[in-house]
Design a binder for these strands. Structure first.
Length: 659
DNA sequence: GACGGTTCAAGCGT
DNA sequence: CACGCTTGAACCGT
C-alpha cells in the first residue's frame, strides 16, 4: 500500500525472462531477377546546397555494402547511385522548407528553441470545457516538453487521464450496446463513434500543446485497446499512420519533429529487439501493404531524421498481439516509454525497394517495458512454474473453489500467511437476510432476458452489463437475475455470481506487503471478484471490534461507481438517473478467519479497482454483495488498488488487516 | 476457426 | 477546403 505513489504501484514483475529476439526472416535473395526501379535522377538539382547537413554517409555506404548489390542482371545497384537517391530525398525535403522561406538551422541546440518547456502549472491540462461547448477541435502547433511535474500534479494528471479513458470506454460500450439489436445493418464502429463524440465536446487531451516526451498521467505499461484511444489521450495523434509529428510548416524553425511512433510489425523490414528497434519509415506501400515504391524523405520520415539530428526523444507504442481481447482484432497497444533515434539510413528492403530505416535506442532509467511484461505474463499463463518455481507457494489458494486458480507467489521472504486461512469464495450472510427480505421475486423470462424482464425493470430499465459482461453504468445497487429467475445460467444479467474469470495472483511486495495482480489483461468495466468475509450485523461487529478482530466496513469504500458510465460531460443536461436510494449499509465483513483473494488488495486514492454493490440471491437491500470491477484497463502483473475510503494516517491499521 | 480481401472509416498534412 | 495518405477494425467469403 503506497499512498504516495500516484501511479498505483508498479509491482516488481519477475525480471530475467529474456525478451524474444525477433530477427527478420533471412530469406535468400534471388539476386539474378532483382529489379530495382530508381526514381528519375535526371532532374537532380545541380547547385550545391552546401548546407552541411551532418549527413552520416558512413551508414549509407554501410548499408550499401550489404549484399544488396548484385553483379548480374539489369538491376545492378551501385553505391554511388544509392547515395544519390538518399541525398536527393534529403535535399528535396530541405528544398521544400527553403521555398517556404524557413530558415534551416544547423545548430543542434535549436532543440532548445523548437521545444518550449512547460511546467505543470502552466499547462491548462485540467480545464475541461463545460459540457456542450465545442472547443479546440484541431491540434495546436506549439511543441512543448512537460517539465517539473511534481508528485501532486502527476497524481492529478493520472486522474484526468483515467477519467478521460473512462468516458471513452463508457461511450464506446454504450454505442456498442445500442447497436446490439440491429443485425442487418452494418455495425457502427464504436471506437470511432466514441472518439468523435469526445472530440466534438473538446474532451481530447493535450490538444492545446503538442507534447514531446512523456505525456503526464500516462505510465509506461499502460494498455490501450484501440488506436483512437491513443488519439484521445494525446499519446499518438494519427489514427492510422505509424509516425506522428509536428509538420515543418508549423514548427518554429520550419523543420518537422517526430513525437511518437507505433511499432506494430506492419513493415517487413522492421526489427524489434525490445531496447533496440530498427524502424522503417512510412510510404511506398500499395493498398495491400506491399512495398512497391521507394520511400521518400518527407513527412514522418523527414521528421524522424530531424528528431535524430536534434537528439529529441520519441514515444514508442507497440502494437502487440493479444489473445483473448473480446471485442478487438486481437491487438493491444502498449506504451513502452521514450527512445532516442540514433541512426538513420536508406536501405534496400526485402521487397527490393528503397526504405528509410531508423535505429531507436530506449532511454535508460525508465520503468520496465510494458510489452516485456505482457510477454512474461503470456509465458506465466502457459506455464505457471516457468519463473522462480520455488517461490510459487501455491498454484491455487482457493483449492479449486474458484473457477480459475489463484497463485500465491513470494520471492521476498518466507511468509506464506494466505495459506493459513479458510478460503471463502462468497460472502456468508446471516440467515435472517434471506427470510426477512420478503419473497424473492425473479423474472419469468425464457431463453433470454429482454425489455420486459422484471430484473431489467428493477435496474431502472437498463441492463447493467454489456453483452460481453462489462459494467455499463455504476449504480447504488445492481440486481442480477438469481435462483428464483427462470432465465438460463448464461443470461447476460448474471455476471458476478459466476465468480472469478481472470487468473489472479497474490504476491509479496516490499511496498505493499501483500498485493493482488492478474496474469490476464483486464478490460475496464470487467468484473474481478467479490470482496468476501463473514457478514456481521452492527451489534456483532461491536463485540468483535472489542476483541480486536479484522473487520471491513462496506460503507467506507468510496463511491467510485458514480464516476463509472457518468455521461454528464457528453450529453447536454445529462442528469444521472434517479436511483432508488438504498439505506446506509450497516454491516461489516469479518475477514479474520475466512476470506478470499480480495482482502489482499492494497489501498490507493487513485485506484484501478472499484466497488459495486450487487444483489442476486436475496432481496435485502441492507446486505448487498460487494463486487469489485476494473476502473481502467489493468495490464497483466500490475497491482490492483482499491480506495478503502480511509485517511492516509489510518493506513497502518489497514495494513494490519491485510497482513 | 484462421486467413485474406473488402469496405468504411477518421484525422491530419498538404 | 478538398483531397490523398495512412502499421484500423469489422465483416464477408473461402
Amino acid at each position: 500500500m503506497n499512498p504516495h505513489n500516484p501511479n498505483q504501484t508498479f509491482p516488481s514483475a519477475p525480471p530475467g525472462i529474456p525478451f524474444p529476439m525477433l530477427t527478420p526472416k533471412q530469406e535468400p535473395r534471388d539476386e539474378t531477377i532483382q529489379e530495382i526501379q530508381y526514381p528519375n535522377l535526371e532532374n537532380l538539382p545541380n547547385q550545391n546546397l552546401n548546407l552541411n547537413l551532418s549527413l552520416n554517409l558512413d551508414f549509407v555506404s554501410q548499408a550499401l555494402e550489404q549484399p544488396t548489390t548484385t553483379t548480374a542482371g539489369a538491376g545492378t545497384v551501385d553505391a554511388a547511385r544509392m547515395a544519390e537517391i538518399f541525398r536527393r530525398s534529403f535535399t528535396e525535403g530541405l528544398q521544400r522548407q527553403i521555398q517556404n522561406n524557413d530558415a534551416v538551422d544547423e545548430n543542434p541546440n535549436a532543440n532548445a528553441r523548437a521545444i518550449v518547456p512547460v511546467s505543470a502549472s502552466e499547462s491548462n491540462y485540467n480545464n475541461a470545457p463545460p459540457a456542450g461547448e465545442v472547443v479546440n477541435v484541431r491540434k495546436h502547433k506549439e511543441l512543448v516538453r512537460m517539465t517539473d511535474v511534481g508528485l501532486p500534479d502527476q497524481r492529478q494528471f493520472r486522474d484526468v487521464v483515467r477519467r478521460t479513458r473512462m468516458v471513452y470506454d463508457s461511450v464506446r460500450v454504450l454505442a456498442m450496446a445500442e447497436e446490439e439489436g440491429n443485425f442487418n445493418v452494418r455495425r457502427v464502429r464504436s471506437d470511432l463513434k466514441a472518439s468523435a463524440t469526445m472530440r466534438s465536446r473538446g474532451l481530447w487531451l493535450n490538444r492545446d500543446k503538442r507534447i514531446v516526451g512523456a505525456i503526464p498521467g500516462i505510465c509506461i505499461g499502460d494498455v490501450f485497446l484501440y488506436r483512437m484511444e491513443l488519439c484521445v489521450v494525446g499519446l499518438h495523434g494519427q489514427p492510422q499512420a505509424g509516425i506522428d509529428y509536428l509538420p515543418g510548416s508549423m514548427s518554429s524553425n520550419g523543420e518537422p519533429i517526430a513525437t511518437s511512433v507505433i511499432v506494430s510489425g506492419g513493415y517487413e523490414d522492421d526489427v524489434d529487439e525490445g531496447d533496440v528497434i530498427i524502424y522503417s519509415g512510412h510510404g511506398g506501400q500499395d493498398k495491400n501493404s506491399r512495398q512497391v515504391f521507394h520511400q521518400k524523405l518527407e513527412g514522418g520520415n523527414l521528421a524522424m531524421e530531424r528528431s535524430m539530428h536534434y537528439g529529441i526523444e520519441v514515444r514508442v507504442i507497440r502494437g502487440v498481439r493479444y489473445e483473448g481481447t473480446s471485442s478487438t482484432s486481437g491487438k493491444v497497444y502498449v506504451y513502452d516509454g521514450l527512445y532516442r533515434i540514433i541512426e538513420c539510413w536508406f536501405d534496400v528492403g526485402k521487397s527490393g525497394f528503397g526504405v528509410f530505416k531508423f535505429k531507436l535506442w530506449r532511454i535508460d532509467g525508465q520503468a520496465k517495458m510494458g510489452s516485456l511484461i505482457l510477454k512474461e505474463a503470456f509465458l506465466l499463463r502457459r506455464d505457471p512454474l516457468c519463473y522462480k518455481p520455488m517461490c510459487v507457494i501455491s498454484l491455487d489458494i482457493s483449492k479449486g473453489m474458484e473457477r480459475v486458480g489463484i497463485r500465491l507467489f513470494n520471492d521476498i521472504d518466507r511468509c506464506n500467511d494466505p495459506m493459513c486461512f479458510e478460503y471463502l469464495p462468497r460472502a456468508t450472510f446471516p440467515h435472517f437476510v434471506f427470510h426477512e427480505s420478503g419473497n424473492a421475486t425473479g423474472c419469468q423470462c425464457e431463453g433470454f432476458c429482454g425489455e420486459g424482464c422484471f430484473c431489467f425493470i428493477k435496474n431502472g430499465n437498463d441492463f447493467p452489463y454489456s453483452q460481453s459482461g462489462l459494467l455499463l453504468k455504476g449504480k447504488p445497487v445492481i440486481f442480477e437475475c438469481g435462483p428464483s429467475c427462470s432465465c438460463p445460467p448464461h443470461c447476460r444479467n448474471r455476471v458476478t455470481q459466476k465468480g472469478l474469470k481472470h487468473r489472479l495472483e497474490v504476491f509479496r511486495s516490499r511496498e505493499t506487503g501483500w498485493g493482488v495482480r492478474s496474469l490476464d489483461l483486464i478490460q475496464a468495466g470487467a468484473f474481478i471478484c467479490e470482496y468476501t468475509g463473514v457478514v456481521l450485523t452492527r451489534e456483532q461487529s461491536e463485540i468483535m471490534t472489542m476483541s480486536g478482530d479484522s473487520l471491513i466496513y462496506p460503507n467506507r469504500f468510496s463511491n467510485r461507481w458514480t464516476e463509472w458510465g457518468n455521461l454528464s460531460l457528453i450529453q447536454d443536461g445529462y442528469v444521472p438517473p434517479s436511483y432508488p436510494s438504498i439505506p446506509p449499509l450497516d454491516f461489516s465483513l469479518d475477514v479474520s478467519r475466512m476470506r478470499n483473494v480480495a482482502c489482499y488488495i492494497s489501498h490507493s486514492s487513485t485506484p484501478n479497482v472499484m466497488v459495486q454493490f450487487v444483489l442476486y440471491d436475496h432481496n435485502n437491500l441492507m446486505f448487498p454483495h460487494i463486487m469489485l470491477f476494473a476502473m481502467e484497463n489493468i495490464p497483466p502483473l500490475r497491482e490492483f488498488s482499491l480506495d478503502y475510503g480511509v485517511a492516509d494516517d489510518e493506513l497502518t491499521g489497514k495494513l494490519v488487516i491485510c497482513n
